[in-house]
């Protein structure tokens, strides 16, 4: 009977019918999605830290408010995504436990430090830009709750990306010092952003199955190429140089060729040796541990209150 169920499941996927939480699904589909969505949620939450690092130092009030609201949006994305993942049978607390013990991963991009204000521009422009490339197709992913969460996430992400680009534009129209700050940020964030799309296709073992299940719609390399193609023109408008001497338009392919990616660096950061891996995880664990008494008190109070209400009703 199992085979039949799998066939029916695949048929629904092929017919573009969304899979919902109560539907039968192969265990591996559930696990793959749970891993992907919880990783995505963790990325939103850990991703609050590098930008949160500049909220108190934003250069003017307009920027401060915009940055604060942006980081808050990321917390909101974390919430939708944890909720979507919970429909697959794991609680938010369990997912957080996996993050805190290092069992679950998050996007490696957030293990790089934010050193200047220009990093707020570069992250919005490049990191959110790359995230959008990855995420727009997820609005049509086969699992209903994930697809619906992503529709909301994508709307806000594209706003963030424009906001980041506008920071870069302002810097590039500014003083020599500001322009140098913008170029430096591009130099530091370019390659990590390119790496956000994950390993090359010939080195990405889970991709074929995810494509078949329509969790993924495009391969890592396709998305990476698309990102490079649109970003080059944006860098030209800014008057900035992308730090890749091999970057060149290829007339025959109709795409930009670009240099080899340093996968050693990527693997190292994934393995925990990036410049901020330890600090990021520590910040999350600290927030969780220091908040324990607050969560316990909130639970205790809610229980007391429920009991009082019950007593009141019984007395009446």
């Amino acid at each position: 009977m199992e085979i039949n169920l799998e066939e029916q499941f695949q048929k629904r996927i092929d017919e573009e019918v969304k899979i919902e939480p109560r539907d039968w699904m192969p265990e591996k589909y559930r696990k793959t999605l749970l891993r992907q969505i919880s990783q995505h949620a963790h990325s939103e939450i850990v991703g609050m830290l590098p930008e949160g690092n500049w909220i108190t130092r934003a250069p003017n009030l307009r920027r401060k408010v915009a940055l604060l609201a942006k980081v808050q949006d990321e917390a909101g994305h974390g919430l939708y995504l944890y909720s979507a993942a919970e429909t697959l049978g794991m609680s938010r607390d369990e997912m957080l436990e996996e993050l805190h013990t290092g069992k679950a991963k998050y996007s490696s991009i957030f293990n790089y430090p934010t050193l200047t204000w220009a990093d707020m521009g570069a992250i919005g422009w490049l990191v959110d830009g790359a995230a959008i490339m990855n995420q727009v197709p997820l609005c049509r992913t086969s699992y209903g709750p994930y697809a619906r969460a992503m529709v909301r996430v994508c709307k806000e992400e594209s706003f963030h990306q424009r906001q980041g680009y506008e920071i870069m534009l302002t810097l590039c129209k500014g003083s020599e010092e500001q322009k140098a700050m913008a170029q430096d940020a591009l130099n530091r964030w370019w390659w990590p952003s390119i790496m956000m799309f994950g390993p090359n296709d010939d080195n990405s073992p889970n991709s074929a199955q995810s494509m078949k299940w329509k969790i993924k719609r495009f391969s890592n390399d396709e998305l990476r190429q698309k990102f490079v193609d649109v970003t080059v023109a944006q860098a030209e408008i800014l008057g900035l140089t992308i730090p890749d001497k091999d970057l060149k338009w290829n007339e025959a392919r109709g795409h930009y060729d670009f240099g080899a990616i340093n996968w050693d660096e990527f693997n190292n950061v994934v393995a925990g040796n990036g410049p901020c891996n330890k600090q990021r995880l520590k910040a999350r664990v600290d927030a969780w541990e220091k908040g324990a008494w607050v969560r316990e008190a909130a639970t205790a109070y809610a229980e007391k209150r429920a009991k009082r209400e019950k007593n009141k009703i019984e007395a009446a």
Partner: peptide
């Protein structure tokens, strides 16, 4: 704003922000 990203629970991080 110093709390942003460090709140005791996600919903309250959002509320204080």
């Amino acid at each position: 704003a110093e709390w942003c990203g460090h709140g005791p629970v996600l919903e309250q991080d959002i509320a204080l922000t």
